[in-house]
Amino acid sequence: MADKTFFIDTTRCTACRGCQIACKEWNQNPATTTKNWGSFQNPEDLSFVTYKLVRFSEVVSDGELRWYFFPDQCRHCIEPPCKDIAESLGYKKAITKDEATGAVIFNEKVKIKQQDFEEIKDSCPFNIPRYDAKKMAIAKCTMCIDRVSNGLVPACVKTCPTGTMNFGDRSQMLALANKRLKELKAEHPKAQLLNAEDVRTIFLVIDDSEKYYEFAKSHGPLGITRLVAMKKLISPLVRLTGLKG
């Protein structure tokens, strides 16, 4: 199995939210209680039981009204900072990366202290990890690793009607992403792939990424803070210790 990548073409998204619900269904995640907060976007944010969320953003761009949809989820970073920081904090089995697919997997069975979770969350340039204080566990998109390992595509990809959600071998997804980028560039000079080289969930947008969502794109080197970097520098020791155990 080659390493895998999502390609999310937001220009095709109609915000039908099939992906958001299919994710809940496949993962059997319960609904949360929500209120209408003046937006179609609900729940308002990702949570311990919401791995996939279509974000809605109304903007005027170049004098034209646009309604952007951003089907947010874990980027499955090629070098996941969450994993590094978790390990540096001593949680050697909390976050792993699947060798075959590249999926970054949170182990919900590993109990994590709230303050450590905050550090793990802060390490994520895309604001993905979520915590359940009662269970002392973290959760996020699993890349439907159970499906993918059995030759199926992730539930969100399967359910997408418009070709917004794509999934496959990384080389193929990169080729598709670049093809679509090229097609769109002529009409949309700001079209771009977000952090394509560093993540396995590549978003294609046609405008400044902040117009979609604050954390759509990582600025700089995947947003790793000085603090995280410092911790990473000392982390190999922790890891080696972990290996013995």
Binding site: K93, T96, D98, E99, A103, I105, F106, N107, E108, K109, T142, I145, D146, R147, S149, N150, L152
Partner: peptide, 11 residues
């Protein structure tokens, strides 16, 4: 990779 293998085994 216990969580991964656990997931994979239990489609």
């Amino acid at each position: 990779l216990s969580p991964v293998s656990a997931y994979a085994a239990t489609l």
